[in-house]
Computed example of a mutant assay.
Amino acid sequence: MSVCTQCGEHVGAGERFCNGCGTPTGARPVPEPTRAVGEHEAHPAPVRRQEE
């Protein structure tokens, strides 16, 4: 836990703004985990028509 440089309020880890005064803390947002896309999902196989 750190302390706000403007008002001295305790700021939790990962908080982007101070809860006391609203000053940005400089913490970066944690990105959402990305889902791995398999080859078959990225490029579906073309549909072939059967010839009569």
Rank of each mutant, 00 (worst) to 15 (best):
Glu9Lys: 11
Gly8Asn: 05
Gly8Met: 04
Thr23Cys: 03
Ala42Cys: 00
Arg16Pro: 05
Arg48Glu: 13
Cys7Tyr: 06
Arg35Leu: 12
Glu52Lys: 13
Pro24Arg: 12
Glu15Arg: 13
Glu39His: 06
Ala36Cys: 01
Glu51Ala: 15
Gln6Gly: 02
Ala13Met: 03
Ala45Glu: 14
Gly26Met: 05
Asn19Ala: 15
Thr34Gly: 02
Val47Met: 01
Val37Asn: 07
Gly20Asp: 08
Gly12Phe: 13
Ala42Met: 06
Pro31Ala: 05
His40Ala: 12
Gly26Pro: 06
Ala13His: 01
Pro46Leu: 07
Glu32Asn: 05
His10Lys: 15
Glu15His: 14
Arg49Pro: 01
Met1Arg: 07
Glu39Tyr: 09
Met1Gly: 09
Pro29Gly: 09
Ala42His: 06
Ala27Tyr: 09
Glu15Val: 02
Gln6Arg: 14
His40Ile: 03
Gly14Asn: 07
Glu15Ser: 15
Ser2Glu: 11
Glu41Asp: 15
Glu32His: 05
Cys18Pro: 06
Val3Met: 05
Glu51Thr: 12
Val11Asn: 00
Val3Thr: 15
His10Tyr: 15
His10Ser: 15
Gly14Asp: 04
Gly22Phe: 10
Val30Ile: 14
Arg49Ala: 06
Gly26Thr: 05
Thr23Arg: 03
Val37Cys: 08
Gly20His: 05
Val30Gln: 04
Cys18Leu: 07
Glu15Phe: 13
Val37Trp: 11
Arg48Gly: 08
Val11Asp: 00
